[in-house]
């Protein structure tokens, strides 16, 4: 019990120290200020081996064996330097924001800038999968670091651990970098068989039919497929020489679907949000427009990818942006 509280105390102190030592930044350069190095298990075994060899040489008064043991000992030190220089001087840049559905693998793109080849780099976010990059060539490279959030919300993935055991595996050389990244996690993508938008949807009179009235400019355009109704063709765009496109929103103009959180048939908020997400994606895939009502916040009807992202982000933030940020802080 005491040990546990002591450990948490130490961790807190250490994390605070780490925050001061390696502050958050989108671009990080690895120097002796933020690189840690310690012998690995193999490194300790190697030291024991060197000592045994020294004893062997001494007991047999065999100078060549003694010389060899000294050589191995100084190889240990050279390996330490090599290990350090394999990380030192790396320049890392990470995208600030990533969005994904809960329990779905996504990745952060990390840009690596290096002036010499680097070997055997392992990237890992806390409690996440590893990414092993066997070699990074001189120049700029991009690596994808896997990330998967368990829960809906806005998450901070924590410090990225970049480690390497190159050159001989005698040392683990690592760093913990805070890129100030954020993961916006949408509700989990699930299929609800009997759920149809009509269950929660109601045609809203207040918001009227005229929301999309602005016309074709609002419409989401996609490649025209043979057999589609002529009325769907975006004539304006065709006239401008943009090719055969069809408007996806035209048919649905006038009967906007309102997706209302409160009307969904579940008691669990998370399930409700998942349903909402499912319905929204259905609408999106069918090219229909929808509006969203979360009670406190409302999104007017619209179609398209941008609209979808906006709505999903709101779901991620639900109940509200500020509150979820608070919850994050408390964590």
């Amino acid at each position: 019990m005491i040990k546990k509280s002591f450990n948490t105390f130490v961790h807190k102190r250490f994390n605070r120290w780490l925050k001061r030592r390696i502050p958050a930044s989108a671009t990080q350069r690895l120097t002796n200020r933020n690189i840690f190095i310690l012998p690995s298990g193999f490194g300790f075994a190697y030291l024991v081996f060197v000592f045994v060899l020294f004893l062997l040489g001494t007991n047999y008064q065999n100078n060549v064996v003694i010389l060899l043991s000294y050589l191995f000992a100084s190889v240990f030190i050279s390996a330490m330097l090599q290990s350090f220089f394999n990380l030192s001087g790396l320049k890392l840049h990470c995208h600030q924001q990533v969005s994904t559905y809960a329990k779905q693998q996504t990745h952060f793109s990390l840009t690596i800038d290096t002036d010499k080849p680097r070997y055997s780099l392992v990237f890992q976010f806390p409690h996440q999968g590893k990414h092993l990059q066997k070699k990074v060539n001189t120049g700029t490279a991009v690596v994808n670091i896997p990330y998967c959030s368990e829960k809906r919300g806005v998450h901070i993935p924590g410090r990225l651990r970049v480690s390497s055991e190159y050159s001989l595996g005698l040392f683990t050389c690592w760093t913990q970098l805070d890129f100030g990244c954020e993961v916006i996690t949408y509700p989990q993508q699930k299929k609800f068989q009997n759920l149809h938008s009509s269950i929660c949807a109601h045609q809203d009179d207040e918001h009227g039919i005229n929301v999309v009235e602005g016309g074709d400019d609002f419409g989401d355009l996609r490649q025209y497929r043979q057999g589609e109704s002529l009325s769907q063709i975006a004539w304006k765009q065709l006239a401008r020489g943009q090719g055969w496109l069809s408007k996806t929103n035209q048919q649905q103009q006038g009967n906007d679907v309102w997706l209302t959180l409160d009307n969904l048939p579940s008691t669990d908020l998370e399930v409700k949000l998942q349903m909402l997400c499912y319905l929204m994606l259905e609408q999106y895939q069918q090219g229909q427009s929808w509006a969203m009502d979360l009670g406190s916040e409302k999104v007017p009807p619209n179609t398209g990818k941008k609209h979808l992202t906006h709505c999903l982000t709101m779901l991620a933030h639900y109940p509200s942006k500020k509150m979820s940020a608070q919850a994050q802080n408390e964590e």
Partner: peptide, 14 residues
């Protein structure tokens, strides 16, 4: 290269 780099220290120790 690694061995050659390590040699001076080894000789010094010796």
């Amino acid at each position: 290269k690694l061995v050659l780099q390590s040699l001076p220290l080894a000789i010094f120790l010796f």
